[in-house]
Design a protein around this nucleic acid. Structure first.
Length: 465
RNA sequence: GUGGUUGUAGCUCAGUCGGUUAGAGCACCAGAUUGUGAUUCUGGGGGUCGUGGGUUCGAGCCCCAUCUUCCACCCCA
């Protein structure tokens, strides 16, 4: 038996009780909101067939998938030639399962497999961990939770509008006041590419302009030229970075620039419709005033995400004035299930990154006391006799819905009260010989250090107030 | 995957030029106080200096490898 220092894999974390309680507070708000909008829960296995996942996230994504080694003699079906053909070839021979990389692809797989049982439009939410073999850094982990809500089987832009509503509701309920929901459309991006004379090159253009706030216009220019976009096109593109005005004014300006392109038309029409729905819903995202002065819902033509499968609206959410990447993102995909042989099912969805939301709430100190609640009262015992006396009282407290515990041994008073102190238990109930004789128990308020003598019924009344 | 960075007590960190027995604060334990926590005083326990090699008379300090942390790319929640 070698003495080995225990450790956990890179990019994974343990969550202590205090952290889990706070995480559950976030999960609860997200879950309640999803259900309020008519989404129902779904769970899928942690592992999928490797073939279900590969090819869905682009070449880079494939590399970030955690593969699972086949059980038993995983080398049985391999030959020396397989090894010489390199790791990509070998992987297929020794691994046929992998940990899920996101929740959207497993969802698409589920929809295809259950297409005959499902009633469309199908709205589901899913809160489960995903794994990525990425290199960890701030806000990036190898195991993290996603909270997805997707609806498939309708192309109505009401869904997009409701996504905005859900994002706004969840973040507001969590106490966040200064955040920006960025929205854009793949059609707008394609239209831009076409309008500047680089039709079909939007993925190169998007990867570059997405970095605008990070590397600035000159950096983007350099990158665009490196990617083979003509100088003339870049000249025509640059005025778009500084479009200003209200969202309605932005739409007007884009109409002039993109009006001639079919894709641009499609994008602008969709975006206008989303706005119309939000207006009808009386959306707070349209009216709320952010402290930073940025509109809460912002049409941002430089937003370019999830290019490998989004085809319509795309979303991203950023909390202002904190050093954290996006905490939520999503978009419409017209053909996700097509990869599994079911074409023509349009879907739209988005995801909250709970781990990042946690870090933001922590940084801004927005966790309420109620999210840290645990035991309300600790019964302090003195000896075997008082322990026996306490047992029915303990049960009475619990029956009354009060989170109560009895210190499990007759330790020193100091020890038992320290325990209450450290667990942040607001009350201690002392039961010694005097109390047993009189039936009047000492209820100590741990914050104030005051205590009063009460019969058990009065204790319960006091604690349930 | 590329480049850099970090690791010393449970936690946060000192540790001089490579030199004797590696320190502090907080936390923990015990006592002051045999029925009162958080405040006060006194005392105490705790370290293979991330791990494995190497250089040296001698390594927490220098070199190599490896793991981990954080950061910038790539990408992304």
């Amino acid at each position: 038996m070698s003495k080995e220092k225990p450790s956990i894999p890179k990019g994974t974390r343990d969550f202590g009780p205090a952290v889990v309680v706070k995480r559950n507070y976030i999960f609860g708000i997200i879950r309640r909101t999803f259900e309020k909008f008519g989404y129902l829960p779904l769970e899928t296995p942690a592992m999928e067939q490797l073939s279900v996942l590969t090819g869905k996230y682009g070449e880079e994504g494939d590399q970030l998938i955690f593969k699972i080694l086949n059980s038993g003699d995983f080398l049985a079906k391999t030959t020396p030639e397989d090894i010489s053909k390199g790791h990509k070839h070998l992987t297929r021979k020794v691994s046929e399962k992998a940990l899920r990389y996101d929740l959207t692809v497993p969802f698409a797989r589920f929809v295809v497999m259950n297409r005959n049982e499902i009633t469309f439009p199908f709205k589901r939410y899913q809160i489960q961990p995903v794994w990525r073999a990425d290199r960890p850094q701030k806000g990036r982990y190898r195991e993290f939770y996603q909270c997805d809500a997707d609806v498939v089987g309708t192309s109505s832009l009401l869904c997009e509008a409701e996504i905005v509503q859900m994002i706004n509701e969840v973040l507001s309920t969590l106490g966040l006041t200064d955040f920006t929901i960025k929205i854009n459309h793949r059609g707008v991006l394609a239209g831009i590419a076409e309008a500047i004379g680089e039709k079909g090159r939007e993925s190169d253009i998007c990867v570059a302009i997405d970095k605008l706030d990070k590397i600035g216009p000159e950096g983007v220019r350099k990158e665009l030229l490196e990617r083979g976009i003509s100088e003339k096109a870049v000249d025509k593109l640059e005025p778009l970075y500084t479009l200003s005005g209200s969202n309605e004014e932005l739409l007007e300006q884009l109409q002039v620039i993109l009006g001639e392109t079919a894709e641009g038309q499609r994008g602008l029409k969709d975006l206008r419709e989303v706005w119309a729905y939000l207006l009808g819903l009386n959306s707070q995202a349209l009216s709320a005033q952010n402290a930073s002065g940025i509109p809460r819902l912002l049409l941002d033509v430089t937003l370019a995400r999830g290019l490998s499968y989004y085809t319509g609206c795309i979303f991203e959410v950023k909390v202002n004035n904190v050093s954290m990447g996006s905490i939520s993102g999503g978009g419409r995909y017209d053909n996700l299930t097509g990869m599994f042989g079911l074409p023509g099912v349009s879907g739209v969805g988005f995801s909250f990154g709970v781990d990042r939301i946690y870090d933001v709430l922590d940084e801004l100190q927005l966790f309420p006391d109620s999210s840290q609640a645990g035991t309300k009262v600790l019964i302090v015992q003195f000896d075997k006799e008082s322990e026996l006396y306490a047992l029915p009282l303990l049960q009475q407290l619990r029956d009354a819905g009060i989170a109560a515990e009895l210190y499990p041994e007759a330790a020193k008073l100091k020890k038992q009260l320290s325990y209450a102190d450290q667990k942040n238990i607001p009350y201690a109930l002392l039961i010694g010989s005097e109390e047993m004789a009189s039936g009047r128990l000492k209820l100590r308020n741990m914050q104030r250090g005051e205590q009063q003598e009460l019969a058990i019924n009065d204790v319960i009344a006091h604690l349930t107030r």
